[in-house]
Nucleic acid binder design. Structure first.
Lengths: 249, 249
DNA sequence: CCTCTCTCTATTGTATACGAAATTAAATGA
DNA sequence: TCATTTAATTTCGTATACAATAGAGAGAGG
């Protein structure tokens, strides 16, 4: 369980090497993007659990790309805080701390709520349709019990919403926050009571359709507060327990 | 001027190679960080102008590190939007567009203003002293006509302010925005009328010292609006001019 | 039986070499 | 004289090889 990748060490070893040799001709950027998304999704959907080590060799064998490319991807993931890169020990899926969770949700509350007015102003019929579509997919995933898929789609919903504000910088920031939130939900989430309530997003869309930015903002505020409140934040053990304090002097 | 680095091509060529070979023993991360800061500062202080190409082997010769390390640093800078990495043509200092400038300042307004209340609550005597120190340094730099230094210190001031909120995620975001702002100021800045007025920061510190979060927020709002208003945004030429529209049908 | 130390292996960090793509310059034809 | 095509040079993208380090495991001593 702690080495989720190395289980498949033997998959496509020589085949991978050959494939990548030939692929040199076509556009490598796409391939790297695909791998990036692949790992990112695995982390977000909790198929790679926090703390899992991501060895460069193993990844390069699985994806048939040399370590150089993997390192690039890993660095990108590290800057998004999805993986942690410890200096001489390699990469591992980040294990978000309670503080981090608090910060991320505070950030989301500030930015996403702040964006609602602009979104309500700029939203079009097409956008509404698209959002409804996402909300429906999320509901379906939730019904069929695919929690991780639901979490991913929920993140995509919030991400798209931020994009509609027209501010690319803030949209990108929100996207990063949503990814991290997915990870946080995967760790601290109460499995019985998933992050976003099913009907929440639908209601929000309705408010936006009416062009009521103020109410949308308030709704988003409650929505995010509700998600945060649903987290099971356990006070984590200190790295090195303070035995003196615990056992008296 | 368009190849600001290659002028010094011959500096420390073999010496660099030897040095790095030996330096393998001590911590290489520091060296990379130093190079990163070096380039970052050069961009922020406008010694490297927007559009300037950053050739990998030129940088590797200047800093005495192999291209591999340079690439890593360049990617980090690219993710912070300080340099642009065009697929098959290498790295260059990003030339912020007017839209980007607008987005960045909108983001700063939302986040930095939103943070003021928390900052006012948490600020300590030591923090006040530190901020006053920065404000003084900025004033001095401005008096001696060192605009680029003043811009850098001003960014550091805003950055530190955000850190005091205790929300690391938002603080990092603000730090990135400040770097980009420096670049924007370097491009669109009216040289007669530098971004932050000298007395502004001092006044802000005073409001924070009094613990008046509301007023601090309003002040920051005006402050950022003033900076943005001071920008000389020229409508940029479209990549490919629409000749039909210009010359009639 | 537990703990401490030493060695060895596994994994990362860095440099270098090779191959591909793009831009530039020159040459030739219209 | 200008445009078009081709060749050459420059620069990036990727793989591989080698060096260094941290962690695990075994062995010895208490």
């Amino acid at each position: 369980m702690s080495q989720p990748v190395s289980e498949r060490k033997s998959i496509g070893r020589e085949a991978g090497s050959r494939a990548q040799r030939q692929r040199n001709t076509d556009n490598g950027t796409e391939r790297h993007d695909a791998i990036y998304r692949s790992i990112s999704d695995a982390v977000i959907e909790h198929r790679l659990k926090p703390g899992a080590r991501l060895r460069e060799d193993a990844l390069s064998e699985v994806f048939g790309v040399s370590r150089t490319g993997i390192r690039k991807i890993l660095q990108r993931l590290a800057l998004e805080q999805l993986v942690t890169l410890t200096p001489q020990r390699g990469a591992s899926v980040t294990r978000p701390t309670a503080d981090e969770a608090k910060d991320v949700f505070a950030a989301r509350q500030m930015v996403e709520c702040g964006l609602m007015a602009e979104v309500a102003k700029r939203i079009t019929e097409d956008n509404i349709r698209e959002l409804r579509n996402l909300a429906r997919q999320e509901r379906d995933a939730l019904r069929s019990g695919e929690q991780s898929t639901a979490i991913k789609i929920s993140a995509a919903f919030h991400e798209r919403l931020a994009q509609l504000s027209g501010n690319d910088t803030l949209a990108e920031f929100v996207a990063g926050l949503c990814s991290r939130s997915s990870l946080i939900l995967a760790v601290y989430g109460n499995s019985g009571h998933l992050g976003c309530e099913t009907h929440d997003h639908g209601e929000l869309i309705q408010l936006l359709e009416q062009g009521d930015g103020g109410q949308a903002r308030d709704f988003m505020d409650r929505h995010l507060k509700a998600i945060e409140a649903s987290l099971l934040i356990v006070e984590e053990a200190a790295e090195v327990p303070d035995l003196y304090r615990i056992f008296g002097s």
